[in-house]
Design a protein around this nucleic acid. Structure first.
Lengths: 229, 229
DNA sequence: CGTTACTTTTAGCCATGGCAAAATTTTAAC
DNA sequence: GTTAAAATTTTGCCATGGCTAAAAGTAACG
């Protein structure tokens, strides 16, 4: 019942609705409370616009929301958000693996395609990729039934010096920064060693696949690593 | 100058604008004059909506239009229309060849994807397919610089009896009818012989790849064939 | 020609999803 | 507690792209 109801709702959702739900999910996953202004800033719209849309999402039964309070996804809303996120990350991986787009090109493309992808296409892409679990940035791909792997890894900025780590995830989205990181070999599965920290949150000296590199502290906080095993 | 102007215009076009331009092109290619009501019927909107949008396209410099007269694409409009048509047919072919969608599934999917496809993706798909000339229905794919192969073939309904023909194009778009035609083997490149006509525009008796089949006259008019060699 | 039938446009409405500016509520500081 | 600052919502506006109903233009026939 809840399922068919949600299916009915879903078929009437616009790309804007989906973008808001996805944004609420992503902001929520970052820990901080999801306020209308945080949402507005994330989406690049005015706070007034966010308030308006969140009220609509509440009426559609997709979020829990009371004036001046934080926004929470309910089960229906979370399912939609995870489905859009699944589309996004499947597309990113597909575009990268099968169509040879670079990892800095895939985000923007997926951002537009994710809203117009049928179930048939989702399944076809899943099959072509062999039911993958992570996209080219190391972000976990939600499963079709709405489960998602927990966050793994720690920021490279907090790594132990002289230990070998495996790069597991890059949270950076900006295309130019991704190009730059790629040029240093900082892709998922790269082997990274933190050689030396600089004081005052200065750059890190690291080794990427045995090549020495300097890395800005703020970028290092957006790169997640795990002990190399 | 005209080119960069058009590029600026293009970046502001909505999916609706693109759909109208594509529809004007397709209707125009069918020979009949493109009136606002024909356009409205083709797109499934009211005549008033079509009038409205055509006025906007005129203001954008994409069509030549005067009240109560037929609508003509100008060079800018035709270029946009052919680009959208190129996207559509490239996508149909890609979805069919690389992702194994059936030929009755690809039209609706391409209809949505065609409006959100970047140049980078267009080029990647073109490269993956080896710069193809026709989609799975035999429709010619416009080139990137806006040229399109002329209509080839004659309706199967007008074929010479007992002659071998090659099926070159299927104008049917409806998914159910396509499924049905596919079940008879009526794909592009099939060998077709018209065995016998029935009077009063009745069904045709045909042979498809040496299998006898009955075919409705109206469908036969939407199947184009060329002499087999 | 003039009248009628048909096509096309205009006028006025609706929903969506933006915005800025004004009003309100919450939070934080005293 | 009171009050000032900050965050949030309300109000009223805009553009887009639909719609229906009414008005106007075109065409065809007697």
């Amino acid at each position: 019942m809840a399922k068919s109801n949600a299916a009915l709702i879903k078929s009437r959702l616009s790309a804007a609705h989906e973008d808001y739900l996805k944004a609420i999910y992503i902001l929520g996953a970052q820990g901080a409370p999801v306020t209308n202004s945080a949402l507005a800033e994330f989406l690049g719209v005015s706070p007034a616009s966010a308030t308006n849309m969140v009220k609509k999402l509440d009426e559609l039964g997709l979020v829990e929301y009371e004036k001046y309070r934080e926004i929470l996804l309910n089960d229906s809303g979370r399912r939609v958000a995870l489905e859009v996120l699944r589309h996004h990350r499947l597309l990113e991986l597909y575009l990268h693996e099968q169509l040879n787009l670079t990892w800095d090109q895939v985000h923007d493309e997926a951002e537009r395609l994710e809203h117009v992808m049928s179930d048939v296409l989702e399944d076809a892409i899943t099959a072509a990729l062999g039911d993958p679990t992570h996209d080219p940035h190391g972000d976990p791909i939600p499963t079709k039934d709405g489960r998602i792997a927990p966050v793994e890894g720690m920021p490279l900025s907090q790594a132990e010096p002289r230990q070998a780590y495996r790069l597991v995830r890059v949270l950076v989205q900006d295309a130019k920064r991704l190009t730059y990181l790629g040029s240093m070999g900082l892709y998922p599965n790269a082997t990274v060693i933190l050689s030396k920290r600089s004081p005052f949150d200065g750059p890190l000296l690291i080794e990427v696949n045995d090549e020495p590199q300097a890395l800005d502290y703020r970028l290092a906080r957006q790169i997640l690593v795990a002990p190399a095993a």
